[in-house]
Amino acid sequence: MLTLDYDRLDVRAGTQLLDLGCGEGRHTFEAYRRGAHVVSLDLSHADLATTRTWTGAMDLAGEPPAGTRTAPVVGDLRALPLPDASFDRVIASEVLEHIVDDASAVAEIARVLKPGGLAAITVPRWLPERICWALSDTYHANEGGHVRIYRASELAGLCRDAGLEHTGTGHAHALHSVYWWLKCFFGMEDTPIVRAWHRLLVWDIVKKPRATRLAERALNPLIGKSVVLYLRKPA
């Protein structure tokens, strides 16, 4: 399940790409499949191990082009163990909302990005997230949970302060907003309606039927769960 548009980010063979807060690697996999040399960074050793297992399986299946490289790195977004201006592209998907000092994290993204390089930052969108917070404290008030709700304009300002140009905005995952509203409404319990909606999401991800793809495309500008900021570091 991808939150950002890889064509818009211009990810291609040979691109040096950093996937920040990669989790179990969902954004790493598509970049690697396209032939990008990917560094996947996260604080979780377990998640990085899962990412490496799946990229290894991709290697065995011959999915990435020959010579494509990937490397897991344990690190903190607020102080990246990486050189200045070392990446063509940087992805930070659904991670800044977990970080109290988000300004330091954005400054680090700008630091490691090459001049002229592109970045994509995704966070939960204000309205769907606000509804989740109103329905359930458990949704966000837990260890490692969400510490803030962003307005896209506020995040864009934070990026400008770090020296990044905001070049465009996208929205994604409207059907997931409904899932989380249901889950929050029922106290994060796994009720029959929540399970049913989850099955719908899995079916949609696997099968990609035209009807749900069109519905989500129409709903994304209204209730998309995630907002995507596309950014550029001036040359």
Rank of each mutant, 00 (worst) to 15 (best):
G145R: 06
I193H: 12
E129W: 03
A107K: 11
E63G: 00
A13G: 09
E189S: 15
E24L: 02
T68L: 04
L231H: 08
I131Y: 08
W197N: 11
V11H: 10
R148Q: 11
S104W: 00
A92V: 02
G117Q: 09
A120R: 01
G67M: 02
A105L: 03
L182F: 06
V147M: 10
K225M: 04
V206Y: 08
T53R: 15
A46R: 11
D76P: 13
L43I: 13
P221N: 09
P209T: 10
V123S: 10
L82R: 00
A107E: 11
H98T: 06
G163P: 13
H173C: 03
S44K: 10
A36L: 05
R148S: 06
L17H: 06
F29W: 14
V90Q: 10
Y139M: 02
M58F: 14
A85E: 15
L118I: 00
P115F: 13
H166F: 04
D19C: 08
T3I: 09
R160P: 09
D190W: 12
V38N: 07
A61F: 12
A141D: 14
A141I: 02
L155I: 02
G168Y: 09
W203A: 14
L127N: 01
V178P: 15
G56Y: 04
R160L: 06
G168E: 03
A49H: 08
R199W: 02
H176K: 12
V38A: 11
R26S: 14
T53H: 15
L41H: 12
G56S: 14
P72F: 04
V202C: 11
R217L: 10
A120F: 08
F186R: 14
Y179R: 12
T28P: 10
H27A: 06
G23C: 05
A92T: 03
L96G: 11
V73H: 08
K208Q: 15
T51E: 08
D59K: 06
F185Q: 08
V74H: 11
N220G: 04
P64I: 01
D19F: 09
G35S: 11
P124L: 06
G14F: 09
A211E: 15
L60S: 13
A85Y: 05
K207F: 06
I99W: 01
R210Y: 01
H27P: 11
T122N: 07
A57C: 07
G56I: 00
V106F: 09
F87S: 02
V123H: 10
V228K: 01
D204T: 02
A57L: 14
V147Y: 08
N220S: 12
D102R: 12
S177M: 05
R217C: 04
R130V: 04
G21I: 03
V178M: 15
V90S: 10
A141W: 09
V38F: 03
L77T: 04
D7Y: 05
S86L: 01
S40P: 07
V95P: 04
D88W: 01
P65S: 05
P124G: 14
K225I: 03
P192Y: 12
S93G: 13
D84E: 13
H173A: 07
E129D: 15
W180N: 12
